[in-house]
Design a protein around this nucleic acid. Structure first.
Lengths: 235, 235
DNA sequence: GTCTATAATTAGATAGAC
DNA sequence: GTCTATCTAATTATAGAC
């Protein structure tokens, strides 16, 4: 039908369909839904159909935009680490001028707040980290190793100032990760056990303060720590 | 074929096939394989075929013994918590006579060593804890809540002696869990990042010592802590 | 109790219209 | 770019022989 093709060609010049914009919007909505799903249920537990439903599109669109479920997973991880890296970049200039121990405390707090805002990151990571495989190797080499090395440097500097005595830096990294993320990673379990929401502003602040107190006790007094409410519950 | 049936009946009386024993053995082998698989890949990622292969039996036997994949998961969790509870029972008499802070330190060390021996427990738990669902509710109410309450009691007692100041007990529980288990949970990632094995005897001991130092710094000097090797690596 | 064979279901991916 | 319809492959579960 040449006439129809012609009509289409004409219309396509008159009406700017901004295909890139719509595409980018759709991609983003899919990615947000995917992060939620992968974080909740892991790669195998997450269903592309469910992700599509949550994003308000049809399932084959995922393959159109990302090629495969694995491609979607990578794009989602990429997106989230991009946000984390942006947060760090933003804080970086401030950190340079600080005492290394204060810098470490700042990084800990930043990390706590990022995890409260985006619990998917640690959920997703930990689900891949329990067994070797292509996804783990990809995420480690592409995203984790740089921040790992940076934290090691910070820890070594803090240790030269007498903090974190006798803890191997790589162990300190794992301790940080575990202690900082666990409440948010297992928030549904925390909710079932205590009836409380770990994402509330007070609880985030208390959590960050507790972490700094644990890892850098000598820093606590010098910083304006958020009030810690020790709560009384019937049990 | 009546003659064959008769022969079978006769033979079955002469040769004691000890069916229960074989059954119990098989069940155990399936459960061990299942724990590994569920811990590595989560409920959805674990395949009953693979579990059967690892256990050296055929896949339908799983349904014969456990009814369903979900039944197998429950039996495996039950088995593992049984072991944990046995460890705790064993240590309990010793703990009663201790200062609550020392008792807490002992519990931390016991928990570290159990997790080093059975990383599946925390792997499995954390994979269910990220989203509400029937498996999470079952495991929380049946297995986690009792130990949660016990730890809260210990923390409150330790706080009355001045330890863990200003940390809400439920938060302390999460911090313990995260800090104690993370190296073992994400052992494959740790291995990729550092080239080291977190399960070695020295590393377990160092990890336990670091944890006690973090949470109960005043206890450290009084206890025979394992030597902590601060290791030097090229990077 | 354990096996072989297979049914039933459902996942991710593709084809093709619009 | 997005949709509908469908394919292919792989999973858990069942039937039935031994």
């Amino acid at each position: 039908m040449p006439s129809r093709r012609l009509a289409h060609r004409v219309r396509s010049r008159l009406i700017p369909r901004r295909p890139r914009l719509r595409s980018a919007e759709t991609r983003l909505r899919i990615i947000e839904a995917a992060l939620q799903a992968f974080g909740d249920a892991g790669f195998d537990g997450a269903l592309t159909r469910e992700i599509a439903r949550a994003a308000g599109i049809q399932q084959p669109l995922i393959n159109y935009h990302f090629g495969s479920k694995h491609g979607l997973w990578q794009a989602a991880v990429e997106h989230l680490f991009g946000r984390l890296e942006a947060s760090v970049e933003e804080a970086l200039p401030r950190l340079g001028s600080l005492d290394p121990r204060d810098a470490l405390a700042e990084v800990l707090e930043l990390f706590v707040h990022f995890n409260a805002e985006h619990p998917e990151l640690a959920r997703l990571m930990i689900k891949e980290a329990t067994a070797r495989g292509p996804r783990l190797e990809w995420i480690i080499e592409r995203h984790v190793r740089p921040s790992f090395e940076a934290v090691l440097q910070l820890v070594r500097q803090a240790q030269r100032h007498g903090s974190l005595y006798g803890i191997e830096p790589a162990s300190a990294y794992c301790l940080f990760m575990g202690a900082a993320t666990s409440v948010f990673v297992m928030a549904p379990a925390f909710q079932l056990l205590t009836g409380n929401d770990p994402f509330s502003a007070e609880r985030r602040a208390a959590h960050a303060a507790a972490l700094v107190r644990l890892f850098l006790p000598e820093r606590t007094a010098r910083r304006d720590t958020a009030a810690v409410r020790v709560e009384r519950r019937p049990n």
